[in-house]
Computed example of a mutant assay.
Amino acid sequence: RPRGTRPGRCEPAGVSLTVRAGEIVGLAGLMGAGRTELLETLYGAGPPGRRSGQIRLAGRPYAPRGPRAALRAGVGFVPEDRRRSALVLEHPVGRSIVLAALRRVSTAGVVRAGRERDAVRQQVAALAIKTSSAAAPVGSLSGGNQQKVVFARHLLTRPRLLLLDEPTRGVDVGAKAEIYRLLRRLADDGMGILLASSELPELTGVCDRIVVLRRGRAVAELAADGCTGEDILTAAMGGTAAGGDDR
């Protein structure tokens, strides 16, 4: 049981799920169901304490001691609140992008300016980040482009598994569509994606499967094809969803 748990948190307590390479798996549930807490645990960012069970990544045991260990193992995390948890708005776009992958642009611990410029240029182009320059403060970008910067940071680490918490919150319709296309492209390239969202159309429209949480426990797994928002809500509230098993 984790120590120092904040009031209102719902730690994972009976979760069994699989995310395969090339698959987008959704995490659904009512507020307080434990979606964020599960993602933080998988990223090594949850509160300390003893946990039972096993996590495997690419067939090997995985027990991150913190976010740095998770990044080294091939796990990236885009948090729900990018302004509070992922970005320093005064920092330049370029440095914000390479922050999680400094080892890739460094030699003997020294950042190589040329490598950094190339990495930033590639990510800005690949994600169509709209910015006046890599030196512009990330806070000067729109919400959608700020979110793309957070994506770019983690994609630069080349993760096997990408964890997403409300990835389109606070972005406009156009940026949402771009993020959805990006996620499908990443999955098609073989990345596994675990996406927590409170937006039911996002879950049914983007994901391949949806795991429903209630009170920290996985209670149903639904195929996204043919699944409706009503099915998800029924499972989240304790009923039996059509096309899924209530566990």
Score class of each variant (00 low, 15 high):
residue 235 A to D: 11
residue 19 V to E: 03
residue 185 R to A: 07
residue 192 G to Q: 10
residue 26 G to L: 14
residue 113 A to E: 13
residue 226 G to I: 09
residue 158 R to M: 10
residue 140 S to E: 08
residue 60 R to M: 03
residue 242 A to W: 00
residue 114 G to M: 10
residue 237 M to I: 05
residue 158 R to L: 05
residue 27 L to Q: 12
residue 178 E to S: 11
residue 197 S to A: 09
residue 220 A to E: 08
residue 149 V to Q: 01
residue 126 A to I: 06
residue 51 R to H: 10
residue 175 A to F: 04
residue 103 R to F: 03
residue 163 L to Q: 06
residue 110 V to F: 06
residue 145 N to P: 01
residue 156 L to E: 13
residue 220 A to Y: 11
residue 152 A to S: 11
residue 154 H to R: 05
residue 157 T to I: 05
residue 94 G to S: 05
residue 69 A to W: 05
residue 10 C to R: 14
residue 169 R to Q: 12
residue 230 E to C: 01
residue 208 D to Y: 04
residue 225 D to S: 15
residue 233 L to P: 00
residue 23 E to G: 15
residue 11 E to F: 00
residue 188 D to A: 15
residue 7 P to H: 11
residue 52 S to G: 12
residue 167 P to H: 10
residue 242 A to S: 13
residue 214 R to K: 11
residue 127 L to D: 13
residue 165 D to S: 15
residue 88 V to G: 08
residue 163 L to K: 09
residue 86 A to R: 03
residue 21 A to C: 03
residue 83 R to L: 13
residue 38 L to Q: 07
residue 195 L to G: 09
residue 4 G to Q: 02
residue 11 E to N: 03
residue 1 R to Q: 04
residue 43 Y to A: 08
residue 173 V to F: 15
residue 247 R to A: 11
residue 134 A to N: 04
residue 19 V to M: 05
residue 161 L to V: 04
residue 116 E to Q: 13
residue 43 Y to G: 00
residue 204 T to P: 01
residue 47 P to Q: 03
residue 227 C to M: 12
residue 108 A to L: 07
residue 233 L to E: 03
residue 54 Q to D: 08
residue 209 R to F: 09
residue 214 R to V: 11
residue 35 R to A: 06
residue 34 G to A: 10
residue 176 K to Q: 13
residue 188 D to V: 02
residue 124 V to S: 04
residue 151 F to Y: 15
residue 35 R to I: 03
residue 190 G to K: 08
residue 208 D to W: 02
residue 49 G to D: 09
residue 36 T to F: 01
residue 86 A to S: 12
residue 71 L to H: 06
